[in-house]
């Protein structure tokens, strides 16, 4: 192995002259080999440089700037240092607190429902005896191919006063006239949660299905022979073995939910009142709809960053513990 590696290096353009010589010579003088390794090392840096630089400029640098901005107060570009004023303001801002509460409500209710559902579906689809597997998988994943704006509007229309759901309920005699699902705080939140589960379950399921490919199927067959119920198989085999994948999807979903924007804007427009408004929606409004207050908006968005980091940290800790 070592020899073949040496020969491979010798075959590189730099050492081309020595191409056909024997092994001992192909290993070459130490100096030349070093420079070749250095060259490869440098090539590596060149390969990863563009992506790394772009992430630094487009993610890390704006994050630092957001923090600096969050310490400044004032309207539009007329800014002055204000210390923690913006952060204090957040906790007195009723609209912001509502949006924070809404976002967490979606997180606490929707993410667990979605992940458990996705896991169960993945386990069912992983069954070797299942017929029409591809058909089921495609159908369940299909919602993910629609854009966020599109599905938000489809659900808005389905649940509208003169929408499909109401026409069915009236037709069946459950309701006398159309119920304004999006005009009442509770039902509007429920519609958002239903929509989110509809859109994202298949997405998470694909990751679990992929993770299940790496688990020997014989484990499942052995469990079946031992008479394990589907419930037992689920909790004793699927969940523990997929833990890294579950952790990854939990972090991704948390991150996504804390940033909910399209649904709030297009499905309910944050209403009725501000009862379904999300944090991102409110931040957008403070910058682009009202008189821009960059400092305040940055403080709110920095809070989201801190929340994402804390929650990811907790999830990783919890994920580790159960080993």
């Amino acid at each position: 192995m070592k020899n073949s590696q040496g020969a491979a290096y010798a075959g590189c353009p730099l050492a081309e002259v020595k191409g056909d010589t024997d092994v001992s010579e192909a290993n070459g003088p130490k100096k030349k080999r070093m420079s070749l390794e250095k060259r490869h090392n440098l090539t590596g840096w060149v390969f990863l440089a563009p992506a790394t630089i772009m992430i630094a400029i487009m993610s890390f640098w704006p994050m630092i700037q957001a923090f600096i901005l969050s310490l400044q107060t004032g309207k539009a570009n007329d800014l002055s240092f204000g210390g923690l004023t913006n952060y204090m303001r957040m906790f007195k801002d009723k609209v912001f607190m509502t949006s924070l509460g809404n976002t967490f409500l979606y997180l606490i209710i929707q993410v667990p429902i979605m992940l458990v559902l996705a896991l169960m579906l993945a386990q069912m689809l992983n069954n070797k005896d299942l017929r029409c597997k591809g058909l089921f998988r495609t159908a369940i994943f299909l919602p993910c191919a629609t854009s966020l704006v599109s599905y938000a509007i489809i659900f808005r229309s389905l649940f509208g006063v003169d929408g499909f759901i109401n026409s069915v309920l009236v037709g069946l005699g459950v309701l006398d006239s159309g119920y304004n699902f999006l005009g009442h705080a509770f039902s509007a939140k429920v519609v958002i949660i239903i929509a989110l589960v509809w859109r994202w379950t298949g997405y998470n399921m694909v990751f679990y299905l992929a993770g299940l490919q790496n688990i020997e199927y014989s484990v499942y067959e052995a469990a079946k022979i031992d008479g394990a119920s589907p419930m037992q198989t689920f909790f004793k085999i699927t969940v523990p073995l997929l833990k890294p994948t579950i952790l990854m999807t939990a972090i991704m979903s948390t991150n996504g939910t804390l940033q909910l924007f399209d649904e709030s804007v297009n499905l309910t427009k944050g209403g009725p009142g501000q009862t379904t408004l999300t944090m991102s929606h409110y931040i957008y409004d403070t910058v682009f709809k009202f008189v821009p207050t960059f400092g305040y908006a940055s403080a709110m968005s920095f809070l989201i960053f801190i929340l994402v980091a804390i929650l990811a940290f907790i999830q990783m800790k919890v994920g580790d513990k159960r080993d």
Binding site: P62, N255, Y284
Partner: peptide, 16 residues
Amino acid sequence: AMMVPFVATIVPLFRM
């Protein structure tokens, strides 16, 4: 950078 929410960078990016 996976932890950085896009919305948190939107104000500086817009100004940039």
